[in-house]
Simulated assay, not measured.
Amino acid sequence: MTAPGPDEQAPVLVGIDGSAGSRAALRAAARIAQALDAPLEVLMLWEGPPLYEGWDVVDPDRPPEGSVRLLRESLAEVFGERLPATVRARLVHGRPAERLVAESGRAQLLVVGRRGHSGLRSAAPGSVSTACVGHARCPVMVVKH
C-alpha cells in the first residue's frame, strides 16, 4: 500500500464482491477511470471460512476458488474477454471495510456498491459502504444498483 510515485497517477479503486451492486460499482469506476485517464484497481476481498468448531488454517496467499471465479465473472461481464491494460485486479485477504479504507490512502477515488452479498434489503447503505464513507482517506462514491 504505497502511495503512487511522482510520475504515477493515483488509481481509481473499486471494491467488489461479485454481487450485482458491486458489478454496477465496477462499471461506474471503469467509466470514471477512463474519463480521468487514470488506472483502475479492482479489489475483491475474501476472508477465511467461518469457524464452528476447532481451528481452521487460512492461507492468505491462496484465495478460495469461489472468490477467484467471482472476480473472473465480474471482470468478464464489465470488460469482456480482454482486460484493458490500465486495469489491475487483485484478490486480497482481509475484512472488506478495513482493507478498502487502508487501501484508500493511495487512491484518488474509492468506488463501492451500496449493498453487497449481505442479503439484507433496506433503505440504509451496507456496512462496508458506510465504513468507507466514514473513514476512507480519499473521496468515496457509493453506487446504488
Rank of each mutant, 00 (worst) to 15 (best):
A30Q: 02
R106G: 07
P64Y: 06
A29F: 02
L83G: 07
S74A: 15
A30R: 00
A30K: 00
S22I: 05
A24P: 00
A20K: 00
A25G: 11
A20G: 06
D37M: 12
E47I: 07
W46T: 08
V87A: 04
G66P: 02
L26W: 02
L100S: 05
P96F: 05
L26E: 01
P39E: 06
P50N: 14
R27Q: 11
P39H: 02
L71G: 05
R95S: 12
S104H: 04
S22L: 03
I16L: 04
I32M: 06
L83D: 10
Q34E: 15
A25L: 02
L51I: 15
A35T: 10
W46F: 10
R27H: 09
R95N: 11
A20R: 05
G66E: 15
D17E: 12
P50K: 09
L100H: 04
S19Q: 09
A35D: 15
R95L: 07
V78P: 00
R69H: 14
S22A: 14
E41V: 09
R90S: 14
E103S: 07
P84T: 08
T86Y: 04
E103K: 05
G105Y: 00
G21K: 03
S67P: 00
L43Y: 01
V92Y: 00
L36W: 02
G94Y: 05
A85T: 12
W55A: 15
G80L: 05
Q34R: 11
R90M: 10
A24E: 06
E47F: 01
V58D: 11
V42N: 04
R88L: 09
D56K: 11
L45K: 03
E98P: 01
V68Y: 03
E41L: 04
V57S: 13
E41K: 02
P63L: 11
A85R: 10
L70T: 05
R69D: 15
E65W: 07
L91F: 05
L70D: 06
R72A: 13
R88D: 14
S19I: 04
A20N: 07
A38M: 01
T86D: 12
A20L: 02
E81D: 15
R62N: 12
L40F: 04
D61V: 08
R88T: 14
E81P: 07
